[in-house]
Design a protein around this nucleic acid. Structure first.
Length: 548
DNA sequence: CGAGTCGCCTGTTAGC
DNA sequence: TGCTAACAGGCGACTC
């Protein structure tokens, strides 16, 4: 079960505990460990490794790499399904969390100093070990034929498209093929396919560019999030310190059959695909409609044992679904000063949306060397450059505040550049197949940008709370804060024009609940674009607040 | 070559 | 309660 995020987590937790250590003894207690290593006996392995130093551990796909110094050999470990690699203080089994000492111990490696070591524990004995000798032996065939690293910048959606183009097998099976992309197992293929809105039994070659784009993005996002959460502990997995992974809480379909889909509420189903079980949402991952798929041999007609009649591809039932994955939903986020827009944006991101912050773009465009920076310096003079070469924002703000003409001049430089970048970000989200893009634009209404978005969300907070936040954040007194608020477009008129309102006047948890509820609602509504504007949403509330 | 099936392995669980 | 059978899914070997 350790897939890429789990192995990466093990690598990271292992690194500080093994790097630079000298190997004292090596004991192979499970001979099956060496089953793929040609001519490598436990004795020969021990002879090669003993007395050598370990370099920082590496990872490739689901393989863990322990380079020996001086080189060039490298230990290679695959944890199979239930393997655990634990850094232990005494390497005697006494402090292995969760398991009695010595049970299922397959490999024991002691370091010369400090009495520390490594243990490989594997009840099911699917783990294996190998010794790479560059130039002479490149490791087992599965290792040398590994496909690209999914999180490497070198891997592109085009490459994925090329690897899928010729394959008739179900997309789920092709993603499990380590030659296509390295590191995906059953958990993350299910999760990526769900996020991309793709049925696991779809023929790989029938995916169009947009679908491949969505899949590519989903794979990278789900892996990155899982690594950040320390991997997924479904049953056996532990990191090198014996700790469980937290991503299990964020799984949306894997291990959730019979439970409601977190996006649409339909019941998650299980299906045999290529001999593996696939979990999916029959509504969010409906097969595309259109002409009934021609009678296909082999695919989805699971072996007669298919008690799951769900293998028949004709219909994806569920509420009013066209079967066509809708395009990116672009939502604008705005609100009063210090109303908590950024926190809300963060909650959107955590709920699975891609997010963009217009202020961050301004910040970036005003960096020295950028055309916007150069234009500002040319227009206002070098006295607005501080000693370190960056723009003197404070001085510029002072000038702009006092002279409306100067403000206009500045805005004429900055705004078009920001808008162009926003346009590019929206375009990129569409080509990446992102389902929901949320863009924070503080001056959304002031600049008349409503037309750019499918819906606009306004964040509100009681005025006193805004004042309080500004006092703390901007180091000004309460009167000054009130003055600044008065100079703005009144929050009430933004609320009046809003499609959805998030009330950030309560606890952060309450705000997050509202955001999560809204995200689910948007996911549902995006199947019918005209309902996304909350004001026309069923229920007919004129300005629906989101209540969890 | 690609696609599919089987075997390896054992702890857990569903069903009788 | 105790038994069997199915299941979990990493990979390689094998067949067609």
């Amino acid at each position: 079960m350790p897939e890429l995020p789990e192995v990466e987590t093990i690598r990271r937790t292992l690194a500080p505990r093994v790097t630079g250590k000298i190997v004292g003894s090596v004991q192979v207690l499970e001979p099956r460990l060496l089953r793929y290593a040609p001519g490598l006996s436990p004795e020969r392995l021990a002879g090669t490794v003993r007395g050598r130093r370990l370099d920082a551990p590496g990872r490739r796909g689901k393989y863990l790499l322990l380079p020996l110094v001086p080189g060039p050999e490298c230990l290679l470990i695959h944890l199979g399904m239930t393997g655990r690699l634990l850094a232990v203080p005494a390497a005697d089994g006494s402090s292995v969390p969760g398991r009695p000492a010595f049970e299922h111990l397959a490999l024991k490696l002691d370091f010369e100093d400090e009495g520390t070591g490594l243990q490989l524990i594997d009840p099911r004995k699917f783990s294996f070990l190998d010794l790479i000798r560059p130039g002479r032996y490149d490791g087992p065939p599965g290792f040398s034929r590994l496909g690209p690293e999914p999180l490497s910048p070198a891997w592109t959606a085009e490459q994925l498209a090329a690897s899928l183009k010729q394959r008739r097998a179900p997309i789920k099976s092709v993603l499990l093929d380590q030659r296509v992309v390295a590191g995906l197992g059953n958990i993350y293929t299910d999760e990526a396919l769900f996020r991309a809105g793709l049925h696991p039994a779809r023929e790989a070659r029938e995916l169009d560019r947009q679908e491949v784009g969505r899949l590519y993005t989903a794979i990278r996002e789900v892996l990155a999030e899982a690594i950040a959460a320390g991997g997924t502990t479904f049953r056996d997995y532990r990191d090198a310190q014996g700790r469980t992974g937290e991503f299990v809480r964020r799984l949306r379909v894997y291990g959730r059959e019979g439970k409601p889909c977190p996006v649409c509420g339909a019941t998650i189903e299980r299906l045999q695909v290529g001999g593996r079980s696939a979990r999916f949402c029959p509504c969010c991952q409906a097969r595309p409609r259109g002409p009934a798929p021609p009678a296909r041999k082999n695919v989805a007609a699971a072996p007669a044992g298919g008690a799951t009649g769900a293998a028949t591809p004709e219909r994806g039932d569920g509420p009013a679904v066209t079967g066509q994955q809708p395009s990116t939903l672009v939502v604008g986020l705005t609100g009063g000063m210090a109303s908590g827009k950024s926190a809300v944006l963060r909650f959107f991101r955590e709920a699975g949306a891609r997010t963009v912050d217009a202020d961050a773009i301004v910040e970036e465009l005003e960096q020295p060397g950028q055309p916007v920076y150069q234009a500002i310096v040319a227009a206002f003079g070098p006295e607005f450059v501080s000693e370190d070469g960056s723009l003197d924002k404070k001085r510029l703000a002072g000038l702009v505040f006092a002279r409306p003409a100067a403000r206009k001049k500045l805005e004429e430089i900055v705004h078009p550049a920001v808008l162009e970048r926003l346009r590019q970000e929206m375009e990129r989200a569409r080509t990446d197949g992102v389902a929901l893009l949320v863009v924070e634009v503080p001056l959304l209404y002031e600049l008349g940008l409503e037309g750019w978005f499918d819906a606009v969300v306004v964040v509100t907070a009681p005025e006193e709370q805004q004042v309080e936040r500004m006092v703390v954040r901007d180091h000004i007194d309460a009167n000054e804060a009130r003055n600044r608020l008065c100079a703005q477009m009144p929050l009430a008129s933004k609320v009046k024009r809003a499609d959805w309102v998030i009330d950030n006047g309560g606890s952060l948890a309450a705000t997050q609940e509202q955001v999560n509820a809204l995200v689910q609602q948007l996911f549902r509504l995006r199947f019918n674009r005209s309902t996304v504007r909350g004001r026309t949403a069923p229920g007919g509330k004129e300005r629906p607040c989101v209540s969890p």
